[in-house]
């Protein structure tokens, strides 16, 4: 696959999907893990503080993973799908945490 040309359009899609989608994925994972920590008894503000601060590191890992292989669009699409999944899951679970 050496020297395969990547079109500008697919590159723009890739950058947006990973940079912005990765941000959404991070927010989703942070919210979900905050909910999880809260469920095992950590106070909500401590749980969220801990997961938000770790989230910034998680984002770096997402970006590096996303750009690791640029021959296919599997990774950017996976980032977008995971973002949608985690954000939706967090949105369903959060009323339960916020009510308590």
């Amino acid at each position: 696959m050496i020297g395969r040309t990547i079109s500008a359009a697919s590159m723009i899609f890739r950058v947006i999907a990973i940079a912005i989608g990765g941000y959404a994925l991070t927010a989703g994972v942070v919210a979900l893990s905050g909910i999880g920590l809260n469920a095992v008894g950590v106070p909500l503000n401590d749980a969220m503080l801990a997961t938000v601060l770790s989230g910034f590191i998680f984002y770096i890992a997402v970006v590096m993973w996303g750009f690791r292989d640029r021959r296919t669009l599997i990774r950017p699409i996976a980032v977008l799908a995971a973002a949608a999944l985690t954000m939706t899951a967090a949105s369903y679970l959060s009323p339960w945490v916020l009510a308590s």
């Binding site: 941000y23 927010a27 989703g28 942070v30 503080l49 938000v52 590191i57 973002a83 954000m87 949105s91």
Partner: peptide, 17 residues
């Protein structure tokens, strides 16, 4: 870099939601 986020942590992380 990381500690900069500790100043308003929730504010930087919340926009997607």
């Amino acid at each position: 870099c990381l500690s900069g986020f500790a100043i308003f942590p929730g504010f930087y992380a919340s926009p997607p939601f």
